[in-house]
């Protein structure tokens, strides 16, 4: 397969993935928008004023970047894990496996689908946030690059989960017991400076903390951690997960007998 043919195969898979989540927008785009809007209302408008300032900003201003990041993480992960596992479960994955598409094209296709949904939901949530607060992005390049890399990272994580999953329970365990706690404890709703010193140290083991703080830095210009270190962490995770996912596809783990 030459590069032009590989590009066509890649574009075909990406269009299929985007068509999938767009077709079922009531399940993929609408629920996160409603959930995050409720967060804005409850935490931002109702409880926020009683909390006061956080890191020198109103609670609403503080929480918006975290909630955008929360929606991007869960939707990037959720899109790939449900789509890939659905393909595997129904046998459609064989359409790709019998074709001459290289494994990295399959990987990039699902990855792009996950990023597309993550960023689409992120964009919807960002627009919704404008009804509650003004957004003044301090470092646009950092903001965009962090959200993009984070979306890639969790799309890859979703793919790994989907490859290992053998039933529908397996694709809910990781989001419920790992992803949600990491995200909620990753500084979405609070500044790490509120925690006792010991728990600040523990929090630094949470990779989501680096993503949320780097993203918040892009918006507000404040962060609990060094943004450069955050970039190193995110890129390192992306590289490791990409190599690992590709290896899983090449060995045919849970895909080829």
């Amino acid at each position: 397969m030459n590069y032009h043919e590989q590009w066509i195969a890649f574009a075909t898979l990406v269009v299929k993935e985007i068509r999938r989540f767009a077709r079922i927008w009531q399940q993929t785009l609408l629920p996160p928008a409603i959930t995050i809007a409720l967060y804005f209302v409850i935490f931002g408008t109702l409880i926020g004023p009683r909390i006061g300032e956080m890191s020198g900003f109103s609670y609403m201003e503080f929480v918006v970047p975290g909630l955008i990041m929360l929606s991007v993480i869960t939707n990037s992960f959720g899109n790939v894990v449900s789509s890939f596992f659905g393909n595997k479960f129904a046998g459609n994955i064989e359409e790709m496996l019998v074709s001459p598409m290289p494994n990295y094209v399959i990987l990039l296709g699902f990855l792009t689908g996950g990023v597309a949904r993550g960023l689409a939901v992120g964009a919807i949530v960002t627009v919704l946030s404008l009804f509650f607060t003004d957004l003044d992005i301090q470092h646009p390049l950092i903001t965009i690059s962090v959200i993009f890399l984070t979306s890639i990272l969790f799309s890859l994580a979703g793919l790994v989960n989907a490859i290992y999953a053998e039933n529908f329970d397996d694709i809910t365990i990781i989001p419920t017991f790992i992803l949600t706690p990491l995200t909620y404890l990753g500084g979405v709703f609070y500044s790490m400076s509120l925690l006792p010193e010991f728990w600040q140290g523990v929090s630094k083991l949470n990779p989501v903390l680096y993503m949320v703080n780097a993203f918040r830095y892009g918006f507000l210009g404040v962060s609990d951690i060094d943004v450069r270190w955050a970039f190193v962490m995110i890129v390192m995770f992306v590289v490791v997960l990409f190599i690992f996912s590709l290896r899983l596809l090449e060995t045919g783990k849970n895909l080829r007998a």
């Binding site: 032009h4 066509i8 898979l13 068509r19 393909n87 129904a90 046998g91 790709m96 074709s99």
Partner: peptide, 25 residues
């Protein structure tokens, strides 16, 4: 294959055209 393994929720034309795309057409 013996078993139906296409996406049951996709349209007939899309199923065939998508497969062609996987072969680089």
């Amino acid at each position: 294959p013996q078993e139906f393994n296409f996406n049951q929720f996709e349209k007939v034309l899309d199923i065939v055209v998508t497969q062609a795309g996987y072969y680089g057409l």
